[in-house]
């Protein structure tokens, strides 16, 4: 059954983004939702670190992916009850190699202070991914062992994947080469 929307049928699309009352379940003491058949946890920032520790203890051995999302002004997206939409989201995918299961964590980060604890002490593999999210969105990972730019050159101003960093309008920032 196809759910493709035509350009005429956008009214239906808007109702999709309203909060769904059916999702009030919790798992690991945080709100949980089902996104296209995948389990998603929605912790508050304060509960984030303890949730990650719980997941690690529960057999999710690998932090597969960590990235940021900028929803900008799209604050009406579908979230479980009690989760307040913020501009930024930090999205982390975990994998349990023995149990063959996946789980996703989405943390809401406010625009004025996108700060979370680093999880690279629990998952060393998250180190590079946190550096990337920090480059691209300006997230601050507290306690990160190596908070240097990874994909951008040192001293780059701005965070390219933010929606207000427009394409093609910003001059390329060259580094001065001394002695030339």
């Amino acid at each position: 059954m196809s759910r493709v929307q035509t350009s005429e049928g956008t009214a239906e699309g808007n109702s999709d983004t309203a909060p769904d009352n059916a999702h009030t379940d919790t798992a690991y003491d945080v709100s949980v939702s089902n996104s296209n058949g995948q389990i998603v946890l929605h912790p508050e920032i304060l509960l984030y670190e303890s949730l990650i520790k719980n997941l690690a203890a529960d057999g999710y051995q690998m932090c597969v992916d960590l990235c940021g999302v900028d929803y900008y002004k799209n604050l009406t997206r579908k979230l479980p009850n009690g989760v307040k939409a913020e501009r930024f989201e930090l999205v982390i995918n975990f994998l349990d190699l023995l149990g063959k299961r996946r789980i996703r964590v989405r943390v809401q980060l406010p625009e004025d202070d996108p700060k979370v604890p680093s999880i690279s002490m629990i998952y060393p593999g998250a180190e590079a991914m946190e550096r990337e999210a920090s480059d691209m969105f300006g997230f601050v990972f507290e306690g990160h062992p190596d908070p240097t730019p990874i994909l951008l050159p040192e001293g780059w101003v701005g965070h390219p994947l933010r929606k207000d960093f427009s394409m093609g309008r910003i001059p390329v920032q060259f580094k001065a080469v001394e002695g030339r």
Partner: peptide, 13 residues
């Protein structure tokens, strides 16, 4: 215009 894709998020591998 392209086709419209319903709102949502997904991870595939």
């Amino acid at each position: 215009e392209g086709y419209k894709v319903p709102a949502g998020e997904v991870y595939t591998s």
